[in-house]
């Protein structure tokens, strides 16, 4: 278990964190991203996708709940971007078929609002990224396995 903490004050800061996280991610990993509305969860995933060599820039997955991006970094080929924001009952996560999706080799999953689906996340190898809002910038901590 390792803990990393960053204090960032500009958009460029996200790239720094993304670079670090991208280097740690392995096939099948789940990245749980916590933080209030407007914290920068999607902005971080945009930086991560760029770091992983995605050709398209992620957009908010709130409405569609799941978006998939082709990436290319060593063994990682697919980035799933999930948003549990609209999920009120954990049962509503089922139609996303996340277990099946994660089984496809080379897939990693970044999830916003993981606190909405604790059961699905339990006993899973996850890296937890927490974004806190500060007056000027953000405090980001990463608790990884």
């Amino acid at each position: 278990m390792s803990v990393n903490v960053w204090n960032i004050s500009s958009v460029e800061g996200w790239s720094r964190i993304a670079k670090h996280i991208a280097s740690k991610l392995r096939d099948g990993d789940v990245l749980a991203i916590e933080g209030p509305l407007g914290a920068g969860k999607t902005t971080f995933v945009q930086a991560l996708a760029q770091e992983l060599g995605a050709s398209r820039t992620p957009k908010s997955p709130t409405f569609s709940m799941l978006r998939t991006y082709a990436v290319n970094q060593k063994s990682i080929k697919r980035l799933l971007h999930v948003d549990a924001y609209r999920i009120e009952n954990e049962i509503d996560l089922l139609p996303l078929d996340l277990d099946e999706e994660l089984h496809i080799p080379g897939t990693i999953l970044a999830m916003e609002w993981p606190e909405r689906v604790p059961k699905w996340l339990a006993n899973r190898r996850i890296c937890r990224l927490t974004i806190e809002m500060r007056k000027y910038g953000r405090k980001v901590s990463c608790l990884g396995s």
Binding site: G35, P36, L37, G38, A39, T42, T43, S60, E132, M133, R134, K135
Partner: peptide, 19 residues
């Protein structure tokens, strides 16, 4: 996406991060 942060600052719940 920046509108959320702006609203949060305007409504004065910036650092506390309450929903």
């Amino acid at each position: 996406s920046g509108l959320k942060t702006a609203i949060r600052q305007e409504v004065g719940q910036g650092a506390r991060g309450k929903e």
